[in-house]
């Protein structure tokens, strides 16, 4: 990996972490585990469309692990990590079918997949199907949050703020 690319990925990760930690200060809107805006995923969506699968994987895992440590919520790490990885796998596939003008759509699917991964992890960890009752809340919230972060990422990408010529 070239130094330049390494620096870019590191910068993106740092940005995502900053957004993540600022978002932690927001009060919870709904008392359901896993419902949040996920603003840090603006960076994820951006990276999915701008970088290779391997690069995005590195950015996302680093952000999730460091975010759990900085946010002091390590017990939530299994949920966020499974969520992030399901989301990533799905988005890398779905991105092939969706052009740049519909990034918000692939972001919605990313959010839904993220929540699916989280719920699956929660079912495995608690060993009960009871947590499945949160699933519709997570899907509905995920659609809204995913559309929002997706639109943000789409604006960024369409403005073409690239670092190619530096």
């Amino acid at each position: 990996m070239k130094t330049k690319k390494l620096t870019r990925l590191a910068l993106l990760t740092a940005l995502a972490l900053i957004i993540f930690i600022i978002e932690l200060q927001f009060p919870d809107i709904v008392p359901i585990p896993g419902v949040k805006l996920g603003l840090a995923n603006i960076i994820t969506v951006y990276a999915v469309y701008k970088y290779t699968a391997k690069d995005v994987f590195l950015i996302v895992t680093t952000r999730v692990v460091l975010g759990a440590i900085f946010g002091g919520n390590i017990s939530a790490l299994p949920y966020s990590l499974t969520g992030a990885l399901t989301c990533l796998a799905g988005m890398l596939l779905i991105k092939r079918a969706i052009p740049v003008n519909f990034i918000w759509l692939s972001s919605i699917f990313g959010a839904i997949l993220h929540n699916t991964g989280q719920i699956a992890a929660a079912v495995l960890m608690t060993g009960t199907l009871t947590v499945l009752s949160f699933y519709p809340f997570l899907i509905a919230a995920g659609c809204i949050a995913g559309a929002f972060t997706g639109i943000c990422a789409q604006l960024l990408i369409k403005r073409n703020i690239t670092d190619d010529k530096t």
């Binding site: 585990p33 017990s75 939530a76 949920y79 929660a122 608690t126 060993g127 009871t130 009752s133």
Partner: peptide
């Protein structure tokens, strides 16, 4: 809608 504490399962 149950009450769930994920950290303590």
């Amino acid at each position: 809608i149950p009450i769930v504490c994920l950290p303590h399962r």
